[in-house]
Design a protein around this nucleic acid. Structure first.
Length: 561
RNA sequence: GCGCCCGUAGCUCAGCUGGAUAGAGUACUUGGCUACGAACCAAGGGGUCAGGAGUUCGAAUCUCUUCGGGCGCACCA
């Protein structure tokens, strides 16, 4: 199977051939990068190489002459049909249909494993995402983080990385104090419209429910902890404990409804109780990068590229949030993550320099650009044509669960993950609801369901399709589908490399489009038995790739809709 | 004011780390179900890639700059 899929990787195969030709034609230019790309137009072949144009300057020769020399020096390959020179000096390579047809067997044999590559080499990568503080239900922004982060994890796993999904939350500090106070006031019957309600208090209705649960002495289970409310309105510590557990449980339910699961939950409070914060502070002081000023302890983060120094210990004796943050990342490093990716909203981007600076100051041999970050831009929510401002404190809110209930899990996930994280996203709830049939996710799922129906009508044993003679698959629709499936592993590899899960969504849309065109133009269940089996094998392979790709997005692949 | 991200068809968005005539979806105009699902397909019009300058065989992509939008700039997280 491995040798099969390696043989189907025409891109790397051609890359090797051109590398050999390069050594012969231009031995003095060994560092020239060999780029093999897929031309947009079929007339330009299946793959093209711009090596000749790159060499034109150093060799001081015409690109077309170099191209001729390269082609002459190109080792023979059974999969290459012909090689042409075009345009300014492109070398266009055409692959034999026979070689492309092998992808059908490759897909059917590999099954759910088709699209997996070993770029990651089994190395450990930790991906932290969502990481919402337990001060309210998850909103659309968290949803984007969840969709992008989870999809990224799936993609990295498929690319051969050993992935750990991690959720970090702050269960101490000022925001939690606000939460505790808000719940306590609600317990005492004070409402947000009361003049005594604090400015920084949380006003959402969910606070009332937490208070009700506390008074009713409910028991909640969250993160393997069981917390029973004592009901004492004056016991702030008990309220805090209960409120955090209650909201964590709510978030867990949101995440479950969104089909997202985490391997590890990390608590900020644990970093204190385990002594990791103290240890980090000591190490930073020992490093010589700290100083006392205005009754506070500062870290000279400007030594590491920050634009100003940062306070570590406030004059009231407490640490700023960034100290446990550094301690947390030191802990990640020690847990053996050669790579860590933090998926966050771009409103937190200022922490990047700070955390990296803190880690550099520790002098623990942590690489300079560690950890990596994927920042998604803000989500704007439109409802009734108007923007809904998301504010926990004001209580105006579009929760992730509302969205899932109204739009559906599959469509919500697709919508939030199918765009480049860098671009701002407008989530029009009415549009997503009323025109849900126009959502591309249904287009892709429909292709999958159509294949299922055809296979059902055929009624044969799909195991025999693995041995179908695919040599008859040679019309333009079929070769297009073959090539598209051949591309899939490289799309996965690219998505993992670029940390760009949206590439999967766009690939699937194209594969589905190729299939729908084929389906409309060519009949699958023809009388010719050999041709029928070949076509069935082809569409079964297409369905498998669709399913694998949808799985990366965390979207279902229904057999009927 | 400083830093990061963005600006591509009326609208929503791609554009494979510099390649060939800039692409999808949607909307609009047409055509296609007496053969496997019409949640589909086929065809058509629609562009100063925000503006300008530079780098080179070649720029939506890289650099500089102007304009416009978002987000940061705490002894909050």
């Amino acid at each position: 199977m491995r040798s099969m899929s390696a043989a189907i990787n025409f891109k790397s195969h051609l890359s090797e051939l051109f590398a050999q030709a390069l050594r012969e034609v231009a031995p003095d230019q060994p560092d020239t990068s060999i780029l093999i790309e897929r031309p947009k137009q079929v007339a330009h072949g299946d793959y093209s190489c711009n090596l000749a144009m790159q060499l034109a300057k150093p060799l001081r020769k015409a690109p077309r002459d170099i191209a001729n020399a390269l082609i002459a020096a190109l080792p023979k390959s059974a999969v290459v049909e012909k090689v042409e020179i075009a345009g300014a000096g492109f070398i266009n390579v055409f692959i034999t249909t026979v070689a492309k047809q092998q992808v059908v067997h490759g897909v059917l044999q590999a099954g759910a494993g088709y699209g997996h590559v070993h770029a990651g080499g089994g190395r450990k990568v930790g991906v932290e995402f969502v990481s919402a503080n337990p001060t309210g239900p998850l909103h659309v922004g968290h949803g984007r983080g969840a969709a992008v982060g989870d999809c990224l994890c799936n993609v990295l796993h498929a690319a051969g990385w050993n992935v750990t999904r991690e959720f970090y939350y702050n269960d101490a500090g000022a925001q939690i104090d606000n939460l505790t106070l808000s719940v306590q006031l609600r317990c005492k019957g004070v409402t947000p419209d009361d003049p005594s309600w604090p400015e920084s208090g949380y006003r959402g209705d969910y606070i009332t429910e937490v208070a009700r649960g506390y008074i009713a002495k409910e028991t909640v289970i969250a993160d393997d902890q069981q917390v029973k409310a004592c009901g004492d309105v004056n016991d702030a510590e008990a309220i805090r404990h209960f409120a955090v557990a209650y909201l964590r449980r709510e978030q867990d339910l949101d995440l479950r409804a969104f089909q997202v699961e985490f391997d590890v939950f990390s608590l900020e409070s644990a970093l204190y109780t385990d002594g990791k914060v103290e240890e980090t502070v000591k190490k930073l002081i020992a490093s010589g990068h700290t100083y006392e000023q205005d009754n506070a302890l500062w870290l000279r983060t400007t030594d590491f590229g920050d634009d100003k120094d940062r306070v570590m210990r406030k004059s009231d004796g407490g640490y700023t949030y960034f100290v446990p943050d550094v301690a947390y990342h030191l802990d990640k490093w020690r847990r053996g993550f050669v790579r860590v990716i933090n998926e966050q909203g771009s409103d937190h981007h200022s922490t990047i320099t700070r955390v990296r600076a803190g880690l550099q100051a520790l002098n623990e041999g942590i690489p300079k650009g560690w950890p990596d970050y994927v920042l998604h831009q803000m989500v704007t929510v439109l409802k009734n044509g108007e923007e809904v401002k998301i504010s926990k404190r004001a209580g105006s809110y579009v929760t992730l669960r509302d969205l899932i209930d109204e739009v559906g899990c599959d469509a919500t996930r697709y919508f939030l993950a199918a765009r480049h994280p860098d671009s701002q996203l407008v989530f029009d709830i009415d549009l997503a609801k009323s025109q849900s049939n126009d959502n591309p996710v249904y287009y892709i799922q429909y292709a999958h369901a159509r294949v299922s129906t055809v296979l059902l009508q055929w009624g044969g044993d799909s195991a025999v399709l693995q041995h179908a003679d695919v040599g008859v698959l040679d019309n333009e629709y079929e070769t297009q589908l073959l090539q598209r499936m051949i591309d899939f592993p490289q799309v996965v590899e690219m998505a993992a490399e670029e940390l760009a899960p949206h590439l999967i969504a766009f690939y699937l849309k194209e594969l589905a489009a190729d299939f729908h065109s084929y389906y409309n133009a060519v009949r699958i269940l023809v009388d010719d038995e050999k041709l029928k089996l070949a076509r069935l094998a082809l569409i079964a392979a297409v369905a498998q790739v669709l399913k694998n790709g949808l799985a990366l997005l965390g979207v279902s692949a229904p057999e009927k809709m």
